[in-house]
Design a protein around this nucleic acid. Structure first.
Length: 912
RNA sequence: GGGCGCUUAACUCAGCGGUAGAGUGCCAUCUUCACACGGUGGAAGUCAUAGGUUCGAAUCCUAUAGCGCCCACCA
């Protein structure tokens, strides 16, 4: 039979099969819709992984969240585009290939620029797809037909266009400034690519003799090697101590140059001696001071941070060796006044952790202030909404203190800057296509700027360039602005903030809005089970692929979803995944149970899956549950529960509370559908106990509800649901995939409060009997009589469901009594009923007394509390009525309970 | 130097003004014809500390302690 499931749930085979199926069927490919389409659109841009990337837990979390949201929207009828691509990742990729070259005993310099770039393309061709192969295993429902790469011809053209436009608008400029320089990567990097770290170091005080006097000025520095490039010493004009030195000069030790003493507010009289050395070529503050005072800029290092010819006797030394040598010389010549321990803030290269050197060089910059202004406004005005909200604060903080963005990199791999220099007249020509002649002197020997652009420049443009900009494409019209962005906070500034600035700028005036996306969901970090950050050096990195192989993709995805509470980091514990694998197994077996019964019914000629399909319009499931006939209390109850679960899941997903949605579905399947509904429906499925009509209804109900529940679960566990769902349709579904079926929608008509309270009473009664049996140590196989004392309402409820109660509670017979049972042995009281298990075996009076005592104490404490509140006029006048009513009712229940327990204890002879 | 977050059952975490929750683990028990990746029952928490606001605080405010993160050109 086509709907047969293997006995054991084995995710590996199932998942591989469906992942391939989804791709082969091009299930998630989205065609550009025609002009008259009215279908609502949902667009999500996949944060493009680096081509060099390997899937890690952070990706996996990100992918899971995106896939849940995407599948959910698709099932609700949105035209859903999830657009994938990879980033060329300038530095990262170049380093990777350079490392490879090194093992071959060569280097990029030996190869030359053109051959090197070719080499990177070759590398990309061979290895660049690795991360997407991994993504496919996760079941990510992206449109694989639309993959882009940030260095594709189209995107490269868009990058040039954007650069030229910004240049023409005077938002890009070129100039000689102090930038962060990595002497290992031999390139400029942006502020964001510098990681700050406080390290123990020293603060040195160096004495600079005042020329023509016996006096001297003492300056402090943490980086003595830069003194070789000093071109002044500054004191504050208001600093009385140095008034007599105004206009004088000092002699720079070791170098013997004379430096002016300048007056500048940079010198803080409160700090150190109040005098500060000025090194315009090696410090950003000094650089500014140098401009103010027209000081020379003496660069004493080369691009690898070795001392250069300007460093006199220190030329050729590495910067740190130079420091030691300079200190030794200062000490020897008596210029070193003091040295003391000092915590030094160090900037390191984000990529290679080399200490960054502030370096004077000519670079390209984006003037960000005007862009930031609009980017702030977009969030302030609610055009973009952050979740969790407090990330907006972080965003504002950063945007308001933003510095110009250095976008040129001295690399080979990347988008080459579209600027050419005329060697004749030194003019810089910026153009979309390679210019033939200099615009100034018509010289034809133009040389292109050797630098490339920061990777983040091109990725910052993606929301529109990936849709065809600068062409006015239909895709751009339909899919921009994208709906949502889901990403980690680590690239909030690198990427999110830049997309907002660039999107608002380039798409200004767009009919549907200029912002690149309207919603941003920022997720936290995945840490190890001890909440430690995963890192290679700590050796605590969990490989998602290994976890998947062990527990299955569905269980791994579910773990991440169930733990993804907004705003808190996830401590990933594989034990949890083990638990969710058990959950998948539970669903699997529920399906097997259902199919087993359906087969039986089919063989008896009563009902088959064809009958189920017939109740669906066109054989396709609808958003509601079709074919379900609520005849019994448990039917009404499970339908009502399903409806509220649907409601809760929808609300949770709308708010990106993935953990809540996952927990709702989990509890519904296991705690409600399996634990109660399936157990309750069992007798109705057997022809021996029920009529053919009843069996038919039971099968129909089981299948239709389960099928709808599979659709509810699908975004979370796409593989197992796909497998079982196809089985429900006997391998002949009217749709290619459950992923294309309708997501269950809440339906108020299915809500049934009476059924829910009724079931709650029955469940309470059944659990009470089970507990009593356990307390009385009744043999598990033995069925014992049960007595119930209750009001007519509860009594008729129990009477109507007597069979269910007897079976579920393993009772021989439920009988009703007319008098209180509280004082009899083996009884238990609740507010709504008293129940007794009639069992002659002697009960353990001491244990029972202990239990009653404990419960009594708890009740009394609560009662006391309630009465105190109810006696408080303030409470009565200020608390909401439903709270007061609730408390009154509870107080009455507790009073009754207390009496019952006291009676019982007295009868037992507990020492009261 | 600024800014932000966390501290709840043995563990990992939810809850964030109206009677303390989940999963795992633990204890007992059961191989009953979907599932031992299971069923049933149970034990387990002065919700970091000290004040305050409130009729009422794990939940809001303030301070303290511990842990963590982000941003920053003070020598």
């Amino acid at each position: 039979m086509a709907h047969e499931l293997s006995k054991a749930y084995e995710p590996g085979a199932i998942e591989a099969r469906w992942a391939q199926y989804w791709i082969d069927q091009k299930l998630f490919a989205v065609a550009t819709p025609p002009a008259d389409s009215t279908q609502p659109v949902f667009t999500l841009l996949l944060p493009p992984p680096n081509v060099t990337g390997r899937l890690h837990m952070g990706h996996m979390l990100n992918q899971t969240e995106m896939d849940i949201i995407v599948r959910w929207h698709r099932m609700r009828g949105f035209l859903t585009l999830w657009l994938p691509g990879t980033d060329h990742a300038g530095i990262a990729t170049q380093m990777m290939v350079e490392r490879q070259l090194a093992t071959e005993g060569t280097s990029r310099q030996q190869l030359g620029r053109e051959a090197f770039i070719q080499r990177v393309w070759d590398w990309k061709k061979h290895y660049g797809g690795a991360i997407f192969d991994q993504m496919k295993r996760l079941g990510a429902s992206v449109d694989w037909e639309r993959q882009y790469f940030t260095m594709d011809e189209g995107l490269s053209r868009a990058v040039r266009e954007a650069f030229v436009q910004l240049y023409e608008e005077d938002l890009i400029y070129r100039g000689k400034y102090i930038v962060n320089w990595c002497p290992r990567c031999i390139t400029a990097i942006s502020d964001l690519e510098v990681v700050h770290e406080d390290v123990p170091g020293k603060l040195y005080q160096v004495r600079y003799p005042v020329v023509g006097t016996d006096d001297s000025l003492v300056v402090a520095t943490t980086r003595p090697e830069t003194m070789l490039g000093d071109t002044a010493v500054a004191v504050n004009e208001k600093d009385e101590r140095y008034r007599h030195l105004h206009g004088k000069r000092v002699r720079l030790p070791l170098m013997g140059r004379d430096l002016p003493i300048i007056l500048d507010d940079l010198a803080n009289p409160e700090f150190g001696t109040g005098a500060v050395k000025i090194t315009p070529a090696h410090d950003p503050n000094d650089f500014q001071a140098g401009l103010r005072h027209l000081l020379p800029q003496i660069d004493v290092m080369d691009e690898t941070a070795r001392m250069n010819e300007n460093a006199g006797p220190y030329a050729g030394l590495d910067r740190f060796q130079a420091r030691e040598k300079i200190l030794a010389d200062l000490r020897q010549q008596g210029f070193l006044e003091s040295e003391r321990d000092y915590v030094v803030p160090l900037g390191k290269c984000d990529r290679c952790k080399t200490v960054v050197e502030p370096r004077l060089s000519t670079q390209w910059f984006i003037k960000v202030a005007p862009l930031a202004e609009r980017a702030i406004e977009a969030v302030e005005k609610g055009e973009i909404r952050f979740t969790p909200e407090n990330y907006a604060k972080t965003y504002f903080e950063w945007m308001r203190n933003i510095h110009d963005w250095c976008i040129s990199r001295q690399l080979w791999w990347g988008h080459r800057i579209p600027a050419w220099r005329c060697p004749e007249c030194k003019t810089i020509v910026v153009a979309r296509e390679t210019p033939a002649r200099c615009t100034n002197c018509s010289g034809s020997a133009l040389e292109q700027d050797p630098d490339v652009l920061d990777t983040w420049f091109s990725s910052g443009l993606l929301p529109f360039t990936a849709l065809g900009w600068p062409e006015k494409t239909r895709d751009l019209e339909v899919f921009y602005p994208t709906t949502l962005l889901i990403t980690g906070f680590d690239i909030l500034f690198f990427w999110v903030a830049r997309m907002i600035m660039l999107g608002c700028h380039f798409m200004a005036g767009n009919a549907k809005g200029s912002v690149p996306f309207t919603e941003v969901y920022i997720h936290a970090l995945v840490r190890d089970s001890e909440r430690k950050k995963m890192s290679k050096t700590k050796g605590n990195v969990l490989d998602p692929i290994e976890i998947i192989e062990q527990y299955g993709t569905d269980a791994t995805r579910f773990t991440l979803a169930a733990m993804a509470a907004p705003g808190t980091d996830i401590a990933f514990n594989p034990d949890r995944t083990d638990g969710y694998r058990a959950f998948a197994n539970k669903i699997w077996n529920a399906a097997r149970f259902i199919f087993m019964n359906v087969d039986r019914a089919q063989q008896a000629g009563i009902w088959s899956l064809d009958d189920f399909r017939k109740v669906l319009p066109g054989g396709k499931p609808t958003a509601s549950v079709r074919g379900f006939q609520a005849v019994t209390l448990e039917d009404r109850w499970i339908l009502s529960r399903f409806n509220s679960t649907t409601q809760e899941v929808q609300q949770a997903l709308e708010d990106y509370r993935f953990h809540e949605a996952a927990n709702q579905v989990y509890d519904f399947f296991w705690g409600q559908f399996c634990d109660w509904y399936i157990e309750l429906i069992k007798p109705r499925l057997s022809l021996g106990d029920s009529s053919a009509g009843a069996v038919r209804t039971a099968c129909q109900n089981l299948v239709s509800l389960f099928e709808a529940a599979l659709r509810l679960l699908h975004p979370f566990m796409p593989f197992i649901t796909e497998e079982i769902w196809h089985a429900v349709y006997d391998g002949k579904p009217a749709l290619l995939s459950v992923a294309l079926a309708a997501f269950p929608a809440p339906d108020p008509a299915q809500s049934d409060v009476d059924a829910e309270t009724g079931m709650a009473i029955l469940q309470d009664l059944i659990v009470s009997v089970r507990t009593l049996r356990a307390d009385l140590k009744v043999e598990p196989r033995e069925r014992v009589p049960v007595q119930v004392f209750a009001n007519t309402e509860v009594r008729s409820l129990v009477e109507q469901n007597r069979g269910a109660v007897e079976r579920m509670a393993n009772a021989e017979k439920v009988t009703f009594v007319e008098a209180s049972l509280a004082k009899l042995p083996g009884a238990r009281s609740t507010a709504r009923f008293e129940v007794r298990v009639v069992y002659e075996k002697k009960i353990d009076a001491a244990a029972e007394c202990q239990r009653l005592q404990k419960e009594l104490e708890r009740s009394e404490k609560e009662l006391e509390n309630a009465e105190r509140q109810l006696g408080n006029t303030q409470f009565l006048s200020k608390a909401p009525p439903q709270v007061i009513d609730g408390l009154r009712q509870r107080s009455q229940e507790l009073t009754v309970l207390r009496e019952k327990m006291r009676t019982a204890m007295k009868e037992l002879g507990c020492g009261v």
